[in-house]
Design a binder for these strands. Structure first.
Length: 815
RNA sequence: GCGAGGGUGGCGGAAUUGGCAGACGCGCUGGACUUAGGAUCCAGUGGAUAAAACCGUGUGGGUUCAAGUCCCACCUCUCGCACCA
């Protein structure tokens, strides 16, 4: 009887006692760093997590069997809003206690899944020993001018009561809670990720092991565009107005200018007579009902003439300046030159306010036309192809000192302050005399006090804690006030994969030599939801640390795999919908091996999949079938004295299938993680042997064949169903652990068939089948095919036009 | 609107890259064993048909001895970005 509970607890204990999954930092073996995205311990794990960790575990165990020194660590992203909110929701229990108890639970859940983590490397981001170094990273950025404080418009979530980074705002709503975000003017800390925009964009090309969709998302987010900055003079004031354009070739088609409503230039560009009208317009578009829809692409284009004019530097024309709702303050210079003939938005605006439209690119059959063509009405550049003229026009602007080549990015700096309790305090103090002073490295960590009222109020809870707040200035020794905001959790998670290398290190975040040896991560596995946030931040922090001399590689993650989600009843699992599948229940009912195998069997791992109870039952049946098969054949192998026996044709074919399956599953793992077909390969093979054993009298069974099958199959099962594989391995009389066994090799010779079945087709339709010896020449096959009775009947004496023999097992006769 | 990836039985999904479509699993049908079956085992299962011929990979065309796979046009779904000048 297959008893999963007994087998699984037995081997989990043995693995733990023997410490076989502890990875030394240095080894003769080649290294392999396998990493899964660590969880927020804001509750218990669901089967979606199990999918992530199972894929990671299969990879780790497979690579271990392939002779690598595999690091497979685990940790908890345990600071931040989710944990804090959950703690508050559960009756104001302290976030630390809440999080710790969740970590306990999760750790136990994972141990029951038989994941081969090196628990000595476990890392918890809220612990002082970790966040001390998160603060250290802040200081390193500060030293290099990459951490700065500025006042400006920020995204504020009224429900979470904190600011959010741009990356955390989705469709104008808070990424976490879905509350519409409002814009506030606040003094906040930023990381200057824009300094790395160029490299973050350029190095995407080097991420050959990343899925394309993630790379495209990062590229879009960074939003690099090449163009020119052009300076227009203001006729009335004599001052200048700079704009950014990607289409300097259309400069001669400019018929008006437009500035963003938020632009600080607005007041000086507004003539006295227009002030009231402009005020009214601003009030209107900032009203609550218009505030969000204004930023949608299909909002109507609206604006007001400011009463002033710009002078087009290339042709001296006077053009009116407008304020317009479709101009984004944060992009470019917050002002544009408008070319209605060649831009749909400018066109709509021009139509609405009856502004002139001048075509300068010939090509399209209607306006607006934003494609390529021949320039006209464009002074010295008329008659040229617009693409070719582009460079010449920029050179012309530079020569006349009215413009220059410019690169623009959509990426904006990373806002890292949070007005919440559960995070790493920003290590800064404010001194009346010295101003902003960073906390010296020797004084780290700046401890997060435990006893504070941490309910969200809109201000950091630390700002009410007098004992935390008051300190002395590290520079002058005078009284000083601590920064009370904490850091975004994404700062914590942007370097955890480095800490895993030296998790216990006291004097530094990690040891350079070790990190340089282990990194980059060979395989990173997680959800697509982190395609921009976490993955972009981690790339950024890696580059910052590299430039600070703390590590020597450019990119943290060599290969990335994004697994699909598991749905239930057509929806994402959530507590509120009551459709969460608990791994504990499944482990109890079917065992961890079955759960793991089912999750891998559900479909291609990168695709979303629907959880079906009947599906896991099917996999459980397979496991039992496998168990029963081995219970039957192992005693036969044990008591057999038979040494070697020639294989019958049937046995040869079965053995061939063993080696073919071995080859197939090895390819499927090495290829694109096609674990679903690996599992079906196991099933097929077990079916074949079950049938063989059932249909053959016991005395006629080829024990050598059974023995080979067992010794080839069980190690292959080990990464997938590790507990059962260990148990079978032991039952076979082998020494533990099969987890340390070598990945079985296959014999190419055994894959060569003795006999092959050939499909005989006439005009592409199968009309007959014959079995022939393998290795016949095409001519011989052709002859046999034409001699086949059924074929002869169909040909009825006629001569075929042509006979194709394809890949040895298909013959097509054309008549 | 722009970008990416998909459309194969009742369902999840396979198909040495142009060579016998539907592997494997679920579900379903029939049978066996049973007091019982939502357990297990056996057989069957793309559609249509008494059976064969026949029809079948979103649609229409094309290339080829041969197309799920290649080419052209279209329909449709999912995801991401979305006034980025």
């Amino acid at each position: 009887m297959y008893d999963h509970e007994k087998i699984e607890s037995k081997w989990q204990k043995k693995w733990e006692e023997s410490g076989i999954f502890h990875t030394p930092n240095h080894s003769d073996k080649p290294k392999y760093y396998s990493l899964v995205m660590f969880p927020y311990p804001s509750g218990t794990l669901h089967v979606g997590h199990v999918k992530n960790y199972t894929i990671g575990d299969v990879v780790s165990r497979y690579k271990r069997m392939r002779g690598y020194n595999v690091m497979n660590p685990f940790g908890y992203d345990s600071f931040g809003l989710p944990a804090e909110n959950a703690a508050i929701a559960h009756g104001n229990i302290h976030p630390e206690d809440w999080t710790r108890s969740n970590i306990e639970t999760i750790r136990n859940q994972i141990k029951k899944l038989g994941i081969s983590y090196d628990w000595d490397r476990e890392t918890i981001t809220f612990e002082e020993s970790y966040y001390k170094w998160t603060q250290w990273i802040f200081l390193k950025l500060y030293e290099r001018g990459l951490a700065y404080k500025k006042s400006g418009p920020v995204n504020w979530c009224p429900s979470c009561k904190t600011v959010l980074a741009n990356e955390q705002v989705v469709d104008g709503k808070c990424e976490r809670c879905g509350t519409p975000v409002v814009i506030k003017q606040l003094d906040q800390w930023y990381f200057k990720i824009t300094n790395y925009a160029e490299e973050l964009d350029a190095f995407i090309d080097k991420l050959t092991g990343w899925p394309d969709n993630v790379k495209i998302m990062q590229r879009n987010w960074i939003g690099k565009s090449i163009g020119a900055e052009v300076t227009f003079k203001i006729k009335e004031s004599g001052k200048t107005l700079k704009i950014f354009t990607t289409r300097p070739d259309t400069l001669w088609g400019v018929t008006f200018m437009a500035v963003a409503p938020e632009s600080p230039l607005l007041s000086e560009l507004t003539s006295i007579s227009k002030q009231n009208e402009v005020e009214e317009f601003l009030t209107k578009i900032n009203s609550t009902e218009n505030r969000f829809e204004r930023f949608s692409a299909d909002a109507p284009k609206e604006g007001v003439f400011l009463g002033t004019h710009a002078i087009n530097p290339v042709n001296g024309e006077e053009i009116p300046i407008y304020v317009a709702n479709y101009i984004l303050y944060e992009y470019g210079t917050g002002a544009i030159m408008a070319v209605p003939a060649h831009d749909a938005r400018d066109y709509a605006f021009a139509k609405k306010y009856s502004l002139p439209i001048r075509e300068v690119v010939e090509g399209g059959n209607q306006l607006p036309y934003d494609g390529d063509g021949i320039l006209k009405n464009s002074g010295p550049f008329s008659g040229m192809k617009n693409r070719e003229a582009m460079d010449k026009i920029i050179a012309y602007l530079e020569e006349k000192k009215i413009g220059k080549r410019t690169v623009n990015y959509k990426l904006r700096d990373w806002l890292i302050s949070r007005q919440r309790y559960w995070g790493a305090p920003i290590p800064i103090v404010y001194c009346d005399k010295c101003g902003i002073v960073p906390v010296p490295e020797k004084d780290l960590p700046v401890r997060l006090p435990r006893d504070v009222k941490f309910d969200p109020t809109g201000r950091s809870p630390l700002s009410y804690d007098e004992r935390f707040l008051h300190t002395t200035c590290p520079k002058c020794g005078g009284p000083a006030i601590r920064e009370s905001d904490t850091m975004d959790t994404f700062v914590d998670s942007s370097w955890y994969y480095l800490r895993y290398v030296n998790p216990k290190e006291k004097d530094r975040p990690f040891i350079k030599e070790d990190v340089d040896e282990w990194l980059p991560v060979d395989q990173y596995i997680g959800g697509v939801e982190h395609a921009i946030l976490h993955l972009l931040y981690s790339r950024f922090i890696t580059k910052v640390l590299r430039d600070g001399g703390y590590l020597s590689f450019d990119e943290p993650f060599k290969n990335l795999f994004t697994q699909g989600m598991i749905y239930k009843d057509g929806a994402k699992m959530s507590k509120s919908k009551g459709n969460v599948v608990s791994p504990d229940e499944m482990v109890e009912k079917y065992g961890a091996d079955t759960l793991r195998l089912y999750i891998l069997f559900m479909g291609p791992p990168e695709k979303d999949a629907e959880w079906l109870e009947s599906g896991i039952e099917g996999v459980y049946r397979f496991i039992v079938k496998l168990w029963n098969l081995f219970e039957f054949i192992l005693p036969l192998i044990e008591k057999s004295t038979e040494t070697k026996r020639d294989l019958s044709d049937e046995e040869y074919e079965i053995r061939r299938k063993v080696h073919m399956t071995l080859k197939k599953i090895t390819n499927d793992i090495e290829g694109d993680f096609r674990f679903n077909t690996v599992v079906s390969g196991f099933m097929e093979l077990v079916n074949i042997f079950s049938d063989y054993v059932k249909s053959t009298p016991e005395k006629d069974l080829n024990v050598g064949l059974l023995n080979e099958f067992a010794h080839k199959l069980v190690p292959c099962l080990s990464p997938f169903i590790p507990h059962l594989a260990e148990e079978l391995w032991e039952m076979m009389g082998e020494k533990p652990f099969v987890a340390n066994a070598e990945w079985p090799s296959y014999d190419e010779d055994a894959i060569k068939p003795r006999k092959i079945e050939v499909a005989l087709m006439v005009n592409g339709k199968v009309r007959s089948r014959i079995v022939i010896d393998a290795g016949l020449s095409e001519d011989e096959i052709r002859k046999i095919a034409l001699n086949d009775d059924k074929i002869k009947g169909i040909l009825n004496g006629k001569n075929p036009k042509k006979v194709f023999v394809a890949s040895g097992n298909v013959v097509n006769i054309v008549v």
